[in-house]
Design a protein around this nucleic acid. Sequence first.
DNA 1: TCTTGACGCTACAAAATATGTAGCGTATCT
DNA 2: AGATACGCTACATATTTTGTAGCGTCAAGA
Lengths: 111, 111
Amino acid sequence: MPVKNIDKARGSTTGRPIMILLDMLGKRWTLRIMWELRDRPLTFRDLQKQCGDISPTTLNSRLRELRDFEIISHDTGGYCYTALGAELGAQMTELDNWSRKWASQLNDSQA
Amino acid sequence: MPVKNIDKARGSTTGRPIMILLDMLGKRWTLRIMWELRDRPLTFRDLQKQCGDISPTTLNSRLRELRDFEIISHDTGGYCYTALGAELGAQMTELDNWSRKWASQLNDSQA
DNA sequence: TCTTGACGCTACAAAATATGTAGCGTATCT
DNA sequence: AGATACGCTACATATTTTGTAGCGTCAAGA
């Protein structure tokens, strides 16, 4: 029996892990949720507030997917990274660093 | 004059670079396009083939956004990373590494 | 015990986004 | 001239996301 739905994620016919990951992260709000969880657990309602405009329907669907894939877990403190999820979460920090550099360069090129 | 549309990206009212980045990467196909360009330039039609199911409408819209933000450029060889874009592209490799570890752990947990 | 508040979520119609097919105009080879 | 590849656009259909309302559970306080 194959790993949950890992073989039939949207747009991913190959079953290659990177494709499944890109597919999941490429859904609206997934990256944002990962970002918001970067340094503390958050409840469902906390996440709704932090993300501003996310609908509960979509939030629930993203959280379910992240849980199914064991990237986050849910306990009494709220939603938080699993051990492996934390390593992916660390990439969020890299993206943040890159984005600052990017923003300053874009400003330069249009000064 | 502010940087192009950097202040009014979808879901991003703050103008914080990370929000704009997450917003852009969170649109379907953006990450996939970055991935496909990781080690060589590709033409519009190459990208269509590599991505399998992407519609030309969507592809064009993503390429335009990536170009506007100076992450990719387009010359006679096709679409490819800018210098800064290449640094973001390098993150794709990190995601790939993570995804392999992830896949093997998911398999273990369901063996 | 009653009420108040937070919790995680579901329902569902409306709006926004992406798809799939067809094909246009340009350029470059033969 | 004809064939081919290029980057794209049009547009109707399909899929995804939103926004609002509200349900059922639980725990603390009056």
